[in-house]
Write a protein that binds this DNA or RNA. Structure first.
Lengths: 220, 220
DNA sequence: TTCTTGTCACCTAGGTGTTAATAT
DNA sequence: ATATTAACACCTAGGTGACAAGAA
């Protein structure tokens, strides 16, 4: 089994419509995809992997006047599909289960010719991350039964997102700033509140609404 | 086979008498121990490890008047011996050989009760780093012949050092400042020279002597 | 005296959204 | 119009030796 870590934060983003930046050089996801694993064979070796599948065959556009995503046509040609293997792979079930597995080295790019091994996505398209646990049988047992049951895929619908080169929904921007430590420089908070980010509230189970951003909106 | 990386830099330090800082929290080595590997079986798995053995059974003291190390008695009780396993272990011979292997995660401590897995050393004692390459036989072959030839240890005498809690030889301090990028804040250089550290000279093969430090000596 | 510890300013290294300029 | 890019200020995270204070 597998449980999504930081699910409350993912839910918060998902309600607004998660966006993930893609850049030529590669950009990390935020939230980072992290999971806890259960029920693996502690002795056996596993490889952990992630890939990203299109949610639909559409291209999107953000309508600022209605603050919503609208279909802008058929999807662009699919990008070269890639798989990100967790850098600690292979490792034993015991090693994977003793702590949260974090895919913080995974980067997203819109460069179709990327040769850094990053995940290639089309901007303005929607994607569903997938998490794969691959059982590596010992060299002795290469039976067919082992080969049929050696793959388990986990899909968390709340981790869906739209790939973008710049944030479209301003509420997403504000939630990123409020919850990503690396964006702390963009927070506008009371001097006594500052430093206590939204993650603390979520981890404490208080699902109190964020205050509306007090600045930063384009005066259209 | 194995070749020490940055050998010219190690030689430079070794001529002065290399010192390595040990702290309670753990301190990295500088220079970092790095090596190139040759002649491994590309398919087979290997574990790479390092440990540190006392050079002799003595305790040392630095005589500032003569700028030299002198014996200060018999060695203190030996520290709990530890082995640092390279975090990429296990990996195939092909993976180890395709790039320089760097032990930059290895840290030295003088805390006898350390529970961070760091290497525990006695300050004011001399040590010889050792580099071990362990062949991991496939689970099928567990013969005695495999078990006798599965270990290869490399020792580079120029990597010997004295563990210290504070630098003793001022020339060592100056060479560290000149060659370690993290110590760039302590360099006193002409504005046009600055940024070009001693590593460039060494890598170009020019073994030109460093200029004497122009400041920083204690006016004893 | 000799050695060790903790704090600090100053770096490296790299992850953020912003912004202005550019491309389509 | 809409989408992308590159430079930038501002962060996190952590590796330096200097220094003053403390310990043996």
């Amino acid at each position: 089994g597998a449980a999504l870590e930081m699910k409350p934060l993912w839910d918060e983003f998902n309600e607004l419509g998660t966006e993930m930046i893609v850049t030529k050089a590669g950009r990390r996801m935020f939230p980072t995809f992290q999971a806890r694993l259960y029920g693996l064979d502690p002795q056996a070796d596993y490889m952990l992997m992630m890939d990203f599948v299109p949610v639909d065959d559409k291209r999107y556009r953000y309508a600022f006047h209605s603050s919503s995503w609208v279909v802008a046509g058929k999807a662009d040609p699919i990008s070269p599909p890639r798989i990100h293997v967790h850098p600690d792979s292979p490792a034993t079930g015991a090693q994977w289960m003793k702590q949260v597995v974090s895919f913080d080295k995974l980067k997203l790019t819109n460069n179709q010719l990327d040769d850094n091994g990053h995940i290639i996505l089309n901007s303005m398209h929607r994607y569903q991350p997938r998490f794969h646990v691959l059982y590596i049988p010992p060299k002795s047992e290469m039976t067919d039964t082992a080969r049929t049951e050696n793959f388990k895929t986990f899909i968390f619908p709340e981790t869906r997102f739209t790939a973008v080169t710049a944030y479209q929904n301003h509420r997403i921007t504000q939630l990123k700033i409020a919850s990503n430590p690396f964006a702390k420089g963009f927070r506008d908070c009371d001097p006594d509140d500052c430093g206590v980010d939204v993650l603390n509230h979520l981890q404490l189970g208080t699902h109190q609404r964020l205050r509306n951003p007090s600045r930063g909106s384009n005066p259209v």
